[in-house]
Write a protein that binds this DNA or RNA. Structure first.
Lengths: 215, 215
DNA sequence: GAAGGGATCGCCGGGATTTTTC
DNA sequence: CCGAAAAATCCCGGCGATCCCT
């Protein structure tokens, strides 16, 4: 075992990501970093998993995980001061989405998929399911509108009414619909704007981008 | 600063992700986890480029930058890869099917046969009978579905329900049914996909192909 | 739904390309 | 009038099932 030093806030963050009682720091980090579970260390069951099409996935919410179990180090009395700037999402909830999206990108099904629409819908599905409220808000921004078209809605009719041939599709496992008759560039643009509104890191957006690039 | 313990391999991985000389563990982890940079800690010079780990495209040129200074080890094969070795058939069982299929192809009856459907059904029959589980799984893939039709099922009704004139037929000596109202090209395609899923060698598939070729 | 087989042709979905709008 | 951004036409490839031939 190796020892590394991390700052207080980061330590708290890692501890907060504990999913199973007794998980070690390595277990948590491996999960967060999408690394394979190391050989001999199968202590905890992996609760994460991407969903390419399965519906039996936790819908949005997150078990309030046990906090601080990492290592043996006792927690100092000086409490954490993770600030929650108004109307900002918690770093934690964002990280959760990031992980889910990465899992999706990694999944065999996603990689093999040849149709942009399917990829598009799958990503939106993960975004919605990991944070419905944030997604809903993103949907209402004017960046989710075109000149005449409406990009997202809770029903097909709304989309059909706002354009001539938008080819709306329901986002899988979601009450939302999206328009679909767009080129790949616009699909990516729509994803980008939505993800930006949801405060996901640019870096993640950049990981998505290649999948919609015109080759 | 807090201390946490991580296993050797994970430590090496983290170290290998160093992008700037002198980066601390916290810096690296924050970057990998997409967390905001903490406070006022912009100590290190940014060398980036030559990311060597990002799977994303690299635009622009590539400085032959110095790599990792922290820790000596190159990064482990932890590249995000995640295949699905889940269902791996034994080489042996595959070989068994190969033999059986070859026998069929060789048989007088098969060679003489003038109807594609019969050939089609016979091959499927052998596939099923030599490895029912694998065949069953193949059957459930979405490659066993058309836009509206369902290609295989355990009963006639399912197939009838999913198309207009599919002409289902029971696969001889088998609990399975297939649709039959397709041209030869599609019959071959169905065989090909099924055989591929069953991990039969391309070579064998190529031996089958001529029997469904449009002459 | 009853003759059966399967090639041919028409439809549909995907999305790059073109057209329209501002 | 030009350029950018958005809309939607339309081509291509894949699939379904009609319908011709045996």
């Amino acid at each position: 075992m190796k020892i590394i030093e991390v700052d207080e806030e980061l330590y708290q963050y890692i501890a907060s990501q504990t999913k199973s009682i007794g998980e070690s720091a390595s277990d948590i980090l491996r999960r967060l970093l999408n690394l394979p579970v190391s050989g001999v260390n199968l202590t905890a069951v992996d609760l994460t998993q991407s969903t390419m099409n399965s519906t039996n996935e936790e819908k949005g919410t997150q078990l309030p995980a046990e906090k601080n179990v990492v290592a043996e180090t006792p927690k100092p009395s000086s409490e954490q001061e993770i600030k929650t700037p108004a109307r900002k999402q918690s770093t934690q909830s964002i990280q959760h989405i990031v992980t889910k999206v990465k899992n999706l990108l990694q999944s065999e099904a996603f990689q093999e998929e040849s149709k942009m629409v399917v990829r598009f819908l799958n990503i939106l599905s993960v975004l919605y399911r990991t944070n419905p409220e944030s997604f809903a808000q993103a949907t209402e921004q004017e960046t989710s509108q075109g000149r005449t078209r409406t990009y997202y809605a809770r029903d097909e009719a709304t989309l059909l009414a706002a354009g001539n041939h938008t080819k709306p599709r329901q986002i899988p496992d979601t009450p939302y619909w999206v328009i679909t008759n767009t080129n790949s560039g616009r699909k990516m643009l729509m994803l980008e704007r939505t993800m930006q509104f949801m405060e996901l890191p640019e870096e993640l957006i950049d990981e998505v981008r290649p999948y919609f690039a015109v080759v």
